[in-house]
Design a binder for these strands. Structure first.
Lengths: 291, 291
DNA sequence: CTCCGGTGATACCCGCCGGGTATCACAGTG
DNA sequence: CACTGTGATACCCGGCGGGTATCACCGGAG
């Protein structure tokens, strides 16, 4: 039996919902359906695969080894499917609308990223003959990987070591050091350099925490939702943070920046799905690497 | 409307079949179904996506821009789905069979690759505590990427510049030069080095051609199906070829090897799907990089 | 011990849709 | 003009995806 026949995307959605909720009832509700057909669908899936996916223990469910594998692989497969749908649809709309067949690229960028590089990139690309229209999609502080994987974006600017480039093609664009950003009046603001360890425990000035994939690292510092809030909190002397050099562009007079000696460099990459064949995308990457 | 709902794997299989055959009737036959329901399925898919995928011109069909996108993205999505099914099923079987939950890794290797490295790798890994069982899957001269993408393999040894590592995670294992392999009696066999250009047109001794993804490059040389055949043809003075240094291991006395000065180095990588979380795999990679 | 609340599973029914066969509409070709 | 080969249409049927009602089971409160 061909394994391609064994998994319908509908079943994948069902299974992932159950695996995330760890509860048939809630999963069914989230899927907008009743619980019994959901139970039956999962049973059918298990029978077809010949594998037990969930351990039904009274009081909730838990994943088997096979179930864990399917969560991982299935998520990737489902993302690939929705990406296929999104990109196909966009390709069709573009062809309809512009008639010229002018493509449209969606570029995901970290909201807080350097505007300078982005502007140079867009300006440079616009010069290019046959350049596609570029829509800039600000993702949260992270999440560009997700955007790329599920087709909401065609290409992204990512920053190691914060984003993982795993599974994508990429080109390095820029490499910069990191700086500590602290209140202008603070004693350490006078220093010409700092170490990570020094910044990590300044008495009375905890490190700000921001969310990667929705979860905040533990610690005493405030939870940061956007850059403006962060700027305020630093200016008020409530917190300190570490950022790439290019953050100097948006500092206030109440802020002080001190280079870090031992922080890993922040590398900006332009990143795209490995299987992409778009000419417009290739041109954008070419432009980017020439900057 | 959520794009995840728009594509069922069944529809993807149908569309890809039609796109490959460029013919509804033949595609239907290949799918083991009648032509009318296939036509209808594609129409439904187009309506749901709101995009025209195929241009029906009397006398066959052709792809629209959107169709081309869906061929690429859909193939990736379908591979991801079959990979999910295969790996889930294997995980379940492993858990059932061994009871110990002992994992089973499938390692894809190019048939003609160096046995030395492979043996060291397997031997080294077997020492590892909690090592999984490793099944070695010889793929053709290429095709390990496909194996990895659709879940027939969990990890592969690949050789740049012949294989593309796009979309995978990888670690470099070994780097070696290339050599020309020619008949022992040939005048050039006495040389201590050669250039690619010199090897490319030796009078009366055309370069052997072997297949990447089933298609052979054009040229006067013989088409090679396996390594033994190649060895024979070289020994007979009918052809010449270029290989990685490690090929010296299987040369005959009728063969001569001459280093190439300007050929790019052959780099052996261990490669795995970027989203993998398998501990057994991680251990294998760790072992490999220590060699 | 008993009853209750909450879990997933079962039983049963219905309407839709995926698949089949027969046929059409159309274009190129002899 | 008849014939061939293309995909599209018309129509029918069975199965399956979805619904409601209910069960079986267990843990905890009283």
């Amino acid at each position: 039996m061909d394994p391609a026949d064994l998994l319908e995307t509908r079943e994948l959605r069902y299974f992932l919902a159950v695996a995330e909720e760890m509860h048939f009832g809630r999963a069914a509700e989230r899927l907008g359906m009743a619980q019994p057909p959901l139970s039956r669908a999962i049973q059918q899936l298990e029978r077809r695969l010949g594998v037990r996916l969930l351990e039904r223990d009274r009081r909730g469910v838990s994943l088997t080894r096979a179930g864990e594998v399917l969560v991982l692989e299935g998520r990737a497969a489902l993302d690939a499917a929705t990406a296929a749908a999104r990109r196909t649809r966009r390709a069709g709309e573009a062809a309809d609308a512009a008639a010229s067949g002018r493509e449209r690229l969606v570029l995901a960028v970290k909201a807080a990223a350097s505007h300078e590089l982005l502007q140079k990139l867009l300006a440079g690309y616009a010069e290019e003959p046959g350049a596609a229209e570029v829509e800039v999609l600000p993702s949260g502080l992270c999440g560009q990987g997700e955007m790329l994987r599920d087709g909401r974006a065609d290409v992204a600017l990512m920053h190691t070591p914060f984003n993982s480039l795993a599974g994508f093609d990429s080109e390095e664009l820029m490499r910069e050091g990191q700086i500590a950003i602290l209140p202008a009046g603070h004693p350490l603001a006078a220093r010409t350099s700092l170490s990570l360890a020094e910044v990590r425990d300044i008495p009375g000035l905890p490190l700000a925490r921001w969310s990667t994939d929705g979860v905040y690292p533990p610690g005493p510092g405030p939870e940061i939702h956007d850059q403006t809030q962060l700027a305020h909190l630093i200016a008020l002397g409530r917190t300190v943070t570490v950022f790439a050099e290019s953050a100097r562009a948006w500092l206030w007079s109440e802020h002080a920046a001190v280079p870090l000696t031992d922080a890993p460099p922040v590398v900006t990459h332009i990143v795209w799905p490995a299987h992409s064949r778009s000419l417009a995308l290739a041109a954008l990457v070419r432009t980017a690497t020439r900057l």
